[in-house]
Design a protein around this nucleic acid. Structure first.
Lengths: 140, 140
DNA sequence: TTAATAACCTACTAGCCCGATAGGGTATTA
DNA sequence: TAATACCCTATCGGGCTAGTAGGTTATTAA
């Protein structure tokens, strides 16, 4: 299950991406438009800034803005930062690998090979989609 | 993330599937072989029986056995019973649909269309794999 | 008939994480 | 200099996961 944090984060990024021009967008505006708790959203945007997706400007007229072009932002990157591993099991995760304490061998594990297939198909979809694709969808 | 319950359930089913003949397998034997807490496994197998995947026989020489052929058991069905929805968001779930309380419209939601793609690719993989595929993997 | 076996059932719990909320501090701008 | 908006820390209720505990019921072999 996708956490609300990730869901809100993606929505916020898409909202910022579809803004005309590059002027900063305030947290309050995003929160209002997307029906998100403002305080919760603040912490999410902060994290996205620290991860290098967003830039911030303080004071009046401040807000958050995209650092890279929407076309350059793959959804795999966004989800890995907000949600963590994309794989359904740590033992098949590329970026958050962890050995199972039960299985003696990964080669003979029935779950392992299945989850690798799931991971790869998911990675393909999320790797093909960029923020630009989402922002366009939202405008139609 | 896949819960341990689902993981254990799949492993147990695969273990039963690869047994020679059709004689019942005891919970204790599966628990020992797969390093699973026996009591926890009991509750999982019970659920799999109630869902129609397994049959049970009480008393000495009893245990659990598959009701259908491994080739007929799709992994989508197993995971839906043990884990619940396959979709990452309730609003794109086929079997456990639930409307988001935030989004005003699903058509314009940026997350929605992305998650439909993820769901479909995952469904494809899990629909193509049956218990027979997993049991074979485990024997190699 | 009895004892052993193994499924079945109910109840409880420690620990973790999610989704916030609260209350400020700090930098920038008009 | 006052307003604005980002930044930071701390806290917390509720729900879920992954068990544990303790017993009941049905079946089989001796």
């Amino acid at each position: 299950m996708l956490s609300k944090k990730t869901k809100y984060g993606i929505k916020a990024l898409a909202f910022i991406a579809k803004q005309p021009g590059k002027k900063p967008v305030q947290t309050s505006e995003i929160a209002r438009s997307e029906n998100i708790s403002q305080k919760f959203l603040e912490s999410i945007l902060l994290e996205l800034r620290k991860s290098g997706f967003l830039g911030a400007k303080k004071g009046k007229g401040g807000g958050y803005y995209l650092i890279k072009e929407p076309e350059e932002i793959k959804m795999t990157a966004v989800i890995r930062v907000l949600e963590g591993p994309i794989a359904m099991v740590p033992c098949v995760s590329l970026n958050y690998y962890e050995k199972c304490d039960d299985c003696p061998s990964e080669e003979t594990c029935s779950v392992h090979s299945l989850m690798i297939q799931v991971r790869d198909s998911t990675l393909k979809v999320l790797g093909e989609n960029t923020l630009a694709d989402l922002a366009v969808k939202e405008q139609e």
